[in-house]
């Protein structure tokens, strides 16, 4: 357990007094899935302890999961390695990327047609595609209806969306990192 002196100031201000370090890179390198270990470790922590995760990419889907357990996220990228602290915070957790000035390069938009899918198929396809593409992903989704229930999920993962009705009667949904829309002034 690392000492309080090594814990970022923001966490100390939130009342965190200790942390449990978990480096999941060996598991991932071996082709394993560290999710169960991460959840098991989190459940063993008390409110004043944070989970300090070391991983080679930003674990965006974990933010929403941890949020449902009342844990906010603080992410720092140092030399290509992501340090993610999950800690108990009374207020709604901020999108971890807000705390980081380093942003992934915006990828070229990828087209995705979900018109032939029964709910929640479209949502699964969209969220999975975003994970597969990684940070900076952009999607142009053809959808039969405006996916209003998707917006909450996107926001928790750091994405935003615009929806444009099409002449054919369906919708074109553009999904991109929230900071991309902010940069465009949208």
């Amino acid at each position: 357990m690392e000492t309080a002196a090594a814990i970022p100031q923001e966490l100390r201000a939130a009342g965190v007094t200790g942390e449990k370090l978990l480096d999941v890179r060996p598991i991932l390198d071996a082709g394993g899935d560290p999710f169960s270990l991460i959840m098991k470790t989190v459940k063993q922590l008390d409110e004043k302890q944070a989970l300090h995760l070391l991983v080679g990419f930003e674990p965006v889907p974990l933010y929403e999961v941890m949020s449902s357990f009342g844990r906010a996220a603080l992410t720092e990228q140092r030399d290509g390695l992501y340090h993610v602290w999950f800690y108990t915070k009374a207020e709604q957790p901020q999108r971890a990327a807000d705390a980081s000035d380093e942003r992934a390069e915006l990828q070229a938009p990828v087209e995705l047609d979900v018109r032939g899918m029964e709910p929640p198929g479209p949502m699964i396809a969209i969220l999975q595609k975003l994970v597969d593409l990684g940070p900076g992903a952009q999607l142009l989704v053809r959808h039969h209806r405006e996916p209003v229930l998707l917006y909450d999920k996107l926001k928790l993962r750091g994405y935003a969306a615009t929806c444009t009705p099409q002449p054919e009667g369906d919708f074109l949904v553009r999904i991109a990192p929230a900071w991309a829309f902010e940069a465009e002034g949208g």
């Binding site: 999710f35 889907p61 929403e64 999961v65 449902s68 029964e118 969220l127």
Partner: peptide, 22 residues
Amino acid sequence: PFLIWLHRFSAYVGLKKVPTAS
């Protein structure tokens, strides 16, 4: 099933295999 999926399972898409609502 859709409601339960949306509120309990949707957060795990991309983290692990999740069942569909049906």
